[in-house]
């Protein structure tokens, strides 16, 4: 295991040169937004502008910006692709239909309620968390359970920072997350075929792992509604559905939380849902994936290529049983 997957040095996980403080970003974004307004009459604007709240492409995603790569050397997926191809059943089951439907969804201001087995429960505004927890850029692979994948430059902060701030009690063994439940704004929540609201969970040691991110931005810009804004979880070593979007509640508990997909089909989606090419979905293969933008399928990596950072969490655990 150790030699099969390249080690990801700490400096590579979060390249210092592209750390982005929120204030700097807002400053540049303002300047760029101003120049974009002029450029909007030009031939480049229009067709390429993604729908949704982030109507302007962040400067980092504009043509000519330095290419972003993950630590394995793979280029980040294009901004337009990341923001127009989304699994987000709260809007629609059609992946390409999410962005247009999310266009009017309000992602700011956004609050998260942290409760349960903690000494300092409370309501946290995203705005305040960004001041307190220094957001940074993390370029992560995202592997969907449907066997497609992307490389996504998130902006966010480790979940561990928020958890430490609320001081988990000794009895806290799991972290439970819940998506906003508001069928008026999230019309998919009227579908009777899903147990709304969307919920997810992590073991506390998984949640404290440095890779687990609360993301508030994309390509140095805002996090568009279709990508899970106001704030979302990103756990890159697990299938995409674990990275719950539009989080409004985080609760620390002593029992394993129910999760959306393990409630729907417990024999197919487990609580852990770690990316594992050796353990197939009962009905289809997980050995390979199609990276968005590539023609040929590529091999899926154990823990989505993050074995070095997370394999230790599952020592002694039968991953075939705990899928």
């Amino acid at each position: 295991m150790k030699d099969r997957y390249p080690r990801m040095a700490e400096s590579e996980v979060t390249p210092k040169s592209i750390y982005l403080s929120r204030r700097d970003f807002i400053k540049t974004a303002g300047v760029v937004a101003g120049s974009m307004a002029i450029a909007a009459c030009g031939p480049l604007a229009g067709d390429n502008a993604p729908p949704g709240p982030a109507a302007t492409v962040p400067p980092a995603a504009a043509p000519g910006a330095p290419a972003r790569k993950d630590e394995l050397g793979d280029a980040a997926t294009a901004y337009q692709d990341i923001t127009r191809y989304n699994n987000y059943y709260e809007f629609t089951e059609e992946k390409e239909g999410v962005a247009p439907r999310a266009a009017g969804f309000k992602t700011s201001p956004w609050d998260v309620q942290v409760s349960g087995l903690v000494n300092k429960p409370g309501r946290f505004a995203v705005e305040d968390m960004l001041k307190q927890f220094q957001p940074e850029e993390r370029i992560y692979r995202l592997r969907c359970v449907e066997a497609w994948s992307m490389v996504i430059p998130w902006v966010g902060f480790p979940l561990a920072k928020l958890l430490k701030a609320v001081e988990p009690q000794a009895g806290a063994k799991y972290v439970r997350f819940e998506t906003l439940y508001k069928p008026d704004d999230l019309p998919g929540q009227r579908s009777p075929f899903y147990p709304w609201p969307y919920q997810e969970g992590l073991r506390i040691d998984e949640a404290m792992n440095d890779l687990a991110l609360l993301a508030t931005g994309l390509y140095g810009g805002e996090l568009p509604a279709q990508n899970g804004g106001g704030i979302r979880l990103v756990v890159p070593w697990k299938y995409g559905f674990k990275s719950i979007k539009a989080v409004v509640k985080i609760e620390l508990t002593d029992t394993q939380p129910k999760t959306m997909w393990s409630t729907i089909a417990p024999s197919e989606s487990g609580f852990y849902a770690n990316v594992n090419p050796q353990v197939d979905h009962p009905r289809w293969s997980q050995a390979r994936e199609r990276r968005i933008g590539e023609l040929r399928r590529r091999s899926t990596l154990m823990f989505n290529g993050y074995a070095e950072q997370v394999a230790g969490l599952y020592a002694g655990l039968d991953l075939r049983k705990n899928y």
């Binding site: 359970v145 449907e146 075929f193 997909w261 729907i264 417990p266 197919e268």
Partner: peptide, 8 residues
């Protein structure tokens, strides 16, 4: 992606 026994 569905559970046919539970129709979900």
């Amino acid at each position: 992606k569905a559970d046919w026994s539970g129709l979900r």
